[in-house]
């Protein structure tokens, strides 16, 4: 790992100022993506701004009809939170499937979203639930926030502060793990929202998380796994690698979407 200067701000404003003042500075939250990358010398930020001492950034609470999760809430906090379990159990389930227990003790929702790994889990939930990503500067909808592989709308001095999830009527996430990395080979998040249905897929798209409108239309007409019979996801634009071909991933999307609809309907 290359040398860097370490900063420990107490507020988001101080953190943002450090990012403005120090060129190429990066924030570090759980460090479970950034540190492995720095150890391999694939990243060498000259300044690290540690968010873990910023008070009140890891809260989990209900605000009106939204579940609000602070950026530094850890995967284990979300998985075990009775508030999340009550409001959006599918989200608690998703968090419990990330990595392994030690990863879940450190990794954060903000870090996961800022990283926008095409095989990460949270992007699927944010996309399907239509969550709002609140930064120190603005509010972003998922369609604006996610901009392709490891790319987001975040500016260099922009910090995710929290994520607001409107409550769905029903939702479920089903993940087919890559056996080696524990990331999603394919993960499908299905949400029956008050006025429509959203189906978001992670792990499969060569541009990261995406929605499957053909599934959404069919499920909007009737929210039942049978509605997806005969609808195929085209495999162009899907990842093909040693873990699975694009055709295999396309097939998995259909299978997992049906399982997710069944799970959302309580027919797991």
């Amino acid at each position: 790992m290359y040398e860097f200067k370490y900063h420990r701000p107490a507020t988001v404003r101080q953190a943002a100022n450090l990012l403005i003042k120090n060129e190429d500075a990066k924030v570090i939250a759980g460090g479970h993506t950034l540190l492995p990358v720095m150890k391999q010398r694939l990243a060498a930020p000259p300044h690290l701004v540690d968010l873990s001492h910023v008070e009140g950034l890891d809260g989990i609470e209900m605000k009106g009809r939204s579940l609000v999760i602070g950026a530094t809430a850890k995967h284990a906090d979300v998985a075990n939170s009775p508030i999340v379990g009550e409001a959006i159990p599918a989200l608690a389930e998703l968090a419990s499937l990330i990595g392994d227990p030690a990863v879940r003790h450190k990794g954060t929702i903000g870090g996961s979203l800022a990283n926008n790994d095409p095989t990460a889990d949270y992007p699927a939930a944010v996309m399907a639930l239509g969550a709002t990503i609140v930064t120190n500067k603005r509010k972003l909808k998922p369609e604006e926030f996610f901009q392709g592989l490891f790319t987001t709308a975040l500016e260099p001095d922009e910090i995710i502060v929290k994520v607001q999830f409107p409550l769905p009527k029903k939702a479920a996430y089903v993940k087919f793990r890559n056996q080696a990395s524990r990331y999603a080979l394919v993960g499908v998040f299905v949400a029956r929202r008050p006025s429509d249905v959203a189906v978001a897929v992670t792990g499969a798209g060569s541009e990261g998380v995406f929605r499957v409108t053909a599934f959404e239309e069919a499920l909007k007409a009737r929210f039942n796994a049978k509605s997806l019979d005969g609808i195929h996801v085209p495999h162009d634009g899907l990842n093909s690698d040693l873990h699975g071909s694009a055709e295999y991933r396309a097939h998995l999307i259909g299978v997992l979407a049906k399982r997710a609809v069944d799970a959302a309907n309580g027919k797991a």
């Binding site: 460090g31 492995p36 150890k39 873990s52 450190k106």
Partner: peptide, 26 residues
């Protein structure tokens, strides 16, 4: 080198974490 093996697990404030993926300053 990839934070995957768990040989480095210690407890920080009573919780299992991978000490190869934590800075001493943290």
């Amino acid at each position: 080198d990839t934070s995957q093996c768990g040989a480095c697990v210690v407890h920080v404030d009573g919780k299992a974490v991978k000490s190869c993926t934590t800075l001493a300053v943290m």
